[in-house]
Design a protein around this nucleic acid. Structure first.
Length: 259
DNA sequence: ATGACAATCAGAGATTGA
């Protein structure tokens, strides 16, 4: 059994102590990171190699940035999402995990898209359309892929305390939800929902407004699996306790197990 | 409608995030 974590760390350097804690408590084989907020040059390679991981990064100064850490040999497949040569933002890496039965994973940091009356929103929708086109190819080729990360999408009522409040927000705007549902309807599975149907199971709590204390969170970090991947996944859980640590990320780790 | 809070880069305060 192989355990894969996804985590928006909101700065890899600030969150290094929590990464050590993740290794010691959850003991993942692979970790998909988002919002590393680091160039490749400044990425803490030595610390993480000492923890026993190979590292593939797609960095950027100040913002965005994704990485994949793996104890299992891996091979880079892509470090950008096809469809827009002018997109410079570091939000995507796909690798092949060379397990006994190999499979692909992609770490994704889907654009937030707010405010919706700015160019940020069409950028989000375009990015989602590109993800849809990419996922369709993967499904058509019958590939085993899990797309994991910070989707900045609240899929359904039950994934926020009051979904009505989010209707005009890029995270649950009808235009965002439409493409998200089209992606799902290609045949991808929201892995967490296979193993947990409870409402109000969150992966993110805003730093302000006492969101954590009031448990006013959002479920916006997801794993979407192609059919042949879905068949192999045996569990998926959120590690909520990381939000209660000192100087936490606003997101917590989520993991799945694959056989 | 605003700002609450954290992080980056830079060395103050603007920008970004969700």
């Amino acid at each position: 059994m192989t355990k894969i974590v996804s985590w928006n760390v909101n700065s890899i350097r600030v969150r290094l102590p929590h990464l050590v804690q993740l290794k010691e408590t959850i003991d993942p084989d692979v970790i998909m990171l988002q919002e590393t907020k680091s160039t490749d040059e400044n990425f803490p390679f030595d610390d993480i190699k000492e923890m026993g991981f190979e590292i593939i990064t797609k960095g950027q100064k100040s913002y965005n940035g994704v990485a994949i850490l793996s104890k299992i040999p891996m091979e880079l497949i892509a470090n950008e999402l096809p469809g827009n040569a002018k997109d410079e933002q570091a939000r995507f890496i796909e690798v092949k995990i060379k397990d006994s039965d190999p499979f692909n994973i992609a770490t994704i940091y889907l654009p937030n898209g707010n405010p919706v009356d700015t160019e940020k929103f069409p950028y989000k929708l375009d990015w989602m359309q590109r993800l849809k086109d990419y996922a369709k190819k993967k499904i058509d080729n019958q590939e085993t892929v899990i797309f994991g990360g910070d989707y900045n999408i609240i899929p359904n009522r039950g994934d926020a305390v009051n979904i009505e409040k989010w209707k005009n927000d890029a995270l649950h705007h009808p235009d965002s939800i439409k493409i998200f549902r089209e992606i799902i309807n290609l045949g991808l599975t929201d892995v967490f929902r296979v193993f947990n149907s409870k409402e109000f199971e969150f992966t993110y709590w805003d730093y302000s407004r006492g969101s954590w204390e009031k448990d006013n969170g959002l479920r916006i970090d997801h794993f979407l699996s192609t059919p042949s991947a879905t068949d192999r996944i045996t569990d998926c859980q959120i590690e909520k306790q990381f939000r209660g640590l000192e100087r936490p990320s606003d997101h917590v780790p989520i993991w799945f197990e694959i056989k």
